[in-house]
Design a protein around this nucleic acid. Structure first.
Length: 399
RNA sequence: GCGUCGGUGGCGGAGCGGUCAAUCGCACGAGACUGUAAAUCUCGCGACCUAUGGUCUACGCAGGUUCGAAUCCUGCCCGGCGCA
């Protein structure tokens, strides 16, 4: 019997919501948890010290690190932890999302959320896919230089072994919300087959004693597919589960529940790429333990900031002479030291510090919101907290 | 004083007889962003209106030529440069 790379303990449940702890070879973190994204081995605009102040964990990306600087180089550097100077737990995504973002979505404004906007091509970007999918794997055209690269489940495993994250994901296909039912079924079957290949490959290596592998549930917005996917993967020997694919913004709750109900209780569930407060409240309630999302850092860089009363765009003219802080109850570094007017100035002047201060605030806000959810599960009233918090956040988008 | 080049929307700068309310930047105003192609992208930006259309006022000022002028002519005002 091989040694388990991670340990997951649930200390308390409230309905389907769980509060727990995950121990990894690089330290532990509490769940539910929000995990900042550092795709290319850096959380954009932040130093590792700034990230550590806010979060115990980060998530990086296999495809992007494979392209640049190359997984072999990272391995030579002593692995991702050493290379990026982050000693806490690191997670890597498999490249499965890039099958979508660089495929069906490339050059368009298509998101994995269905029906939220008209899909159109961006004028300044080419609208054709950089991706070719077949039953055995995916050919990617590099976004950096156009060269062609092949990903298979085994290759994704191999790369992720080189990167050396504590937790990593099976290579899946994130399917477009616009795909036909026939296609979704075909893709799901393929993803399941790939999942088994990932396990087989991973378990044949000694890395399986220090790196945990999560399978990824797909199935889009179709109940039968989601249920099937979660049941099939639940039978496989994964250390935890990712929930991926596309959703309906309005109906994300039900889609998540179709899945969590069929996953093993004793393994962590990670809702991939979700991070808006309203979505996380719903998902935590349905038993999700982990989240990661680019949203807090991406929107921060263009001046959108979270407040308990909804998001604000600091570039709006009304903030030019607003000498109050972003959120008077926030204890992040940014709110402790800088005014809205100063941030507005930094953004208008296109100063780098603008991105840094905004990212610090947004990450702190989101990470601590999920941490607070955990507290409410442990010793409060999660449902009541959720209702009260969302009431203020959703109904008050003007500040 | 003479010569010469030029005066266009908040700024820079196109246009050089009709398709010009005027290319394009910037600035400004607003929006988007959910396993990062992203310090990015989209939209708006003379005024007014019975608004996927219409009316008016506009390209230094005043006249003129022409069916029609930001674009041609004359005078004036203002600026750069050169020569006295």
């Amino acid at each position: 019997m091989t040694k388990k790379p991670i340990k997951f303990e649930i200390s308390h449940k409230s309905g389907q919501a769980r509060a727990g702890l995950i121990e990894t070879p690089h330290g532990s973190f509490k769940t539910p948890v929000f995990i900042p994204v550092g795709t290319k081995a850096t959380v954009k605009s932040l130093t590792p010290e700034q990230v550590k102040e806010i979060s115990d964990v980060v998530l990086a990306n296999t495809y992007h690190l494979y392209l640049q600087p190359g997984h072999k180089l990272v391995e030579k550097a002593g692995g991702l932890h050493k290379f990026m100077n982050f000693s806490g737990p690191i997670i890597t995504d498999s490249g499965g999302f890039q099958v979508f973002s660089l495929g069906a979505a490339y050059g368009t404004n298509l998101s994995k959320f269905a029906g939220t906007r008209d899909v159109k091509s961006s004028k300044s970007k080419k609208g054709h896919s950089l991706v070719e999918i077949d039953d055995e794997g995916v050919n990617f055209r590099s976004v950096i230089d156009g060269s062609i690269h092949r990903f298979t489940p085994e290759i994704s495993m191999e790369i992720q072994h080189s990167l050396g994250a504590d937790i990593f994901f099976a290579f899946d296909e994130c399917v477009s919300p616009q795909a036909s039912v026939e296609y979704q079924k075909k893709a799901l079957e393929r993803t399941h087959r790939w999942a088994q290949q990932c396990i087989t490959y991973h378990h044949s290596k000694e890395n399986s004693e220090r790196q945990a592998l999560f399978g990824v549930v797909q199935g889009g917005r179709m109940k039968d597919l989601r249920v099937e996917s979660s049941r099939v993967l639940a039978e496989m020997d994964f250390d935890g589960y990712g929930i991926g694919g596309s959703f309906d913004k309005e109906d994300i709750t039900t889609a998540v529940e179709w899945v969590t109900k069929n996953l093993p209780e004793d393994k962590p569930r990670h809702l991939l790429g979700i991070g808006e407060p309203e979505d996380m409240f719903e998902a935590v309630e349905k038993g999700v333990d982990m989240f990661d999302c680019v949203s807090p850092t991406r929107i921060a860089r263009s001046g959108t900031l979270y407040t308990p009363e909804g998001k604000i765009n600091i570039l709006n003219s009304r903030f030019r002479e607003d000498f109050t802080v972003i959120d008077k109850n926030c204890s992040c570094y940014t709110c402790k030291n800088y005014s809205r007017a100063y941030l507005a100035h930094l953004f208008r002047a296109k100063e780098m510090l603008a991105s840094t201060l905004a990212s610090i605030h947004n990450l702190y806000f989101i990470v601590n919101l999920v941490a607070r959810m955990r507290e409410e599960i442990l010793e409060g009233d999660f449902a009541k907290f959720k209702e009260g918090w969302l009431q203020v956040y959703m109904n008050n988008n003007l500040n």
